[in-house]
């Protein structure tokens, strides 16, 4: 199956001189984590070329929402780098102050079909803050590239 891609719905990429920022918004915190992950892989590759053939279950622990966000994204980056996976679809099952449980769907990197737009070194804590305004959640994450 092809992943449904709607670029710039829920996130936008913010330019910095040497790095990249991801501005994400959603109507709940689960959506915020899912959108942030999509944005991360939008930086890495052309998401329209990635299909959801396999899944990885992910459990992350941390001591704040911000820490969980960075750890969640860095875990995806780790799987991308070590197992050479590209993800295009994410769903968070549960999230509380100390744990995130979710699933990432994607496939193995295939040189013939996939391109790597940007190699991401890490997701940083720089000026990271998760904000909640009524039903709208938002955050900005800076990525080291």
């Amino acid at each position: 199956m092809k992943c449904a891609i709607m670029p710039f719905v829920g996130y936008e990429l913010v330019e910095h001189t040497a790095d990249l920022g991801i501005r994400v918004w959603a109507d709940d915190i689960k959506g915020l984590f899912e959108e942030a992950a999509r944005a991360l892989f939008d930086i890495i590759t052309d998401l329209t070329k990635v299909e959801a053939h396999l899944k990885r279950e992910i459990v992350i622990r941390g001591s704040s929402r911000e820490e969980l966000m960075v750890a969640w994204l860095n875990e995806l980056l780790y799987l991308h780098e070590v197992e050479l996976l590209l993800f295009c679809d994410f769903s968070i099952a549960e999230i509380d102050e100390g744990t995130v449980t979710g699933v990432a769907n994607g496939e193995e990197f295939d040189e013939a079909r996939h391109s790597v737009k940007t190699e991401v070194k890490a997701v940083t804590y720089h000026q990271l803050e998760i904000k909640e305004h009524g039903e709208r959640w938002q955050t900005q994450v800076i990525v080291d590239i």
């Binding site: 001591s63 820490e67 860095n74 804590y125 000026q127």
Partner: peptide, 23 residues
């Protein structure tokens, strides 16, 4: 670096170091 930052976020709190930026 990422592993160490996670440790240092706790450490800074533990040792009472005030940070103008988490990073």
């Amino acid at each position: 670096c990422d592993d160490s930052i996670r440790v240092m976020l706790q450490a800074a709190q533990h040792y009472g170091i005030e940070l103008p930026d988490k990073q």
